[in-house]
Structure formats: structure tokens, C-alpha cells
Design a protein around this nucleic acid. Sequence first.
DNA 1: ATCGTATATCGTCGAACAACGATGATTGAA
DNA 2: TTCAATCATCGTTGTTCGACGATATACGAT
Lengths: 116, 116
Amino acid sequence: MTSVPHPTPTTSIEECHVPPEAGIVVAPPDDETLAALAKAIGHPARLLILRLLADRETCITGDVVAELPLAQSTVSEHLRILREAGLIRGEIEGPRTRYCIDAGGLALLKAGITVL
Amino acid sequence: MTSVPHPTPTTSIEECHVPPEAGIVVAPPDDETLAALAKAIGHPARLLILRLLADRETCITGDVVAELPLAQSTVSEHLRILREAGLIRGEIEGPRTRYCIDAGGLALLKAGITVL
DNA sequence: ATCGTATATCGTCGAACAACGATGATTGAA
DNA sequence: TTCAATCATCGTTGTTCGACGATATACGAT
């Protein structure tokens, strides 16, 4: 499982893809968790990253850096915050890291917000 | 429209009530706005306040203070943050202030999150 | 083995946050 | 008018955030 039948947008795709919005059902989280999730998206740059990962399935750090008017280290920080909040996942792929939306975390966030 | 047919939970009710969840439809906000809204609920205490205002329709500052393990000034700050974010509204009512959910702001938040 | 690339991490700095007590402003009651 | 109550605001302190450049790490290619 190394070759991919794709035009390869920037690099290859290995794991980072899920059935787009498979209608995940989760119980709303407690306030502590929901607050942490909300805090994680409480910055325009991180929202933009989330949209980026939702649109393309490219997911590579460098691509994200290229799209934002921020330093590489700053973007890496935002990625870390999103990852630690459980909203994205990053798997190391050779010398680079492929990020993708964590559908579970996102579903948790949505579940928590919609019942407010 | 001054008298209210209610047991008056703590004080009287003047304006702070809307048809509970009248299915408001709004366009999703831009990232700047959505981030601000998310940041506002990015703290457990503020989520609790939101739930408090959603449950009772009492809305008075003192009641909120009584429910939280925080100083009065701290609660007042949280209320200010929620108000400036557009998630609650506060109207002065004699020597006290009555707070209530701002259904519009909440709808904006929900709209922004659900389309993520 | 070495080099270059891609990322994460570290150290720093200024700004914003969270909490508190104390003070001030405004209103209703005495 | 004076008093008590209610709430917002101020000033302070410690903590966290956001941004950056510089450095370290890990891998692929030469």
C-alpha cells in the first residue's frame, strides 16, 4: 500500500481520508471538554486551517504554511493546538507530517454546540 | 405588557424572554466572528452561565453569582465577555441587571459550527 | 556518510486572560 | 436625605496566548 492512483495534489495520500461526513453520532461532551474544543477554534488562523483540511485532502504541513501569512513555527503551533484538542490528527510520513480532520473530535464539538 | 403570569422565580420579568428556540435561520459568520464567538464559550464557567440562562429565565446577576464558585467581580467579567461577544444581553432593571440569552448570537455560533 | 528538506521544539517578548479584593455608581427603601 | 443593596469597574498578580527567529531532529536523496 504505497502507490496511490491519484494526481497527487502535492504528495501521496496514505491514511488521511474518511468518508466525508459519515454522520457520526456522539453524546455531547461535558463543559470542560466543550470549552477546550471551543477554545481551540477560537482563533481565525485555526479556523482557516480546519477549512483547509476539510477542502483539500492534502494535509501536509508545508501546504498549510503556504496558505497562511504566518511563520512556519507559528503554524506548527496552531497545528499542535488543534491536534491536542482532538480536532485534527497528524501522522508522520517520512520527513513530513500529514494532517487531517479528526471527524470524531469535530463531531463532539458540533454535538456540544447544537444542544446549547 | 408589564405583568407576567409566573411565580416570579426571583424577581419580575420584563423583556428577557423569547419564544424558546424559534428556529432562527442565519448565514454562517466569517472566521473572525466565529472565532470570537467560540473564544467566548471557551471557558467552563461561561458555558455554565449560558446553561443557567437557558434553563431558568431568571437572568439576574446575583443568581448567577450564587451558582458559581467565583467572586462577584469574576462572574461580572464573564458576563461582560459573553455580552460583548453577542451571546447574551443585559438590560438594567433598577439596581440590578437582568441577563438573557441572545438568540441571534447563539444562532450565529451554531450556524458557524455546523457548517464546519 | 553527508547534505538538504521538512517539521517540531525552544526561548523570548509583548499582549491578553482569569481571578480576586476594593472602590464607585446607581437605585429603592426607610 | 440617608442607608443598604446590587452590580460594574479599577488595580493587581500570576498565567496563558500569539508570534517570531533560531535551533534540533528525522528522513530521503546523493
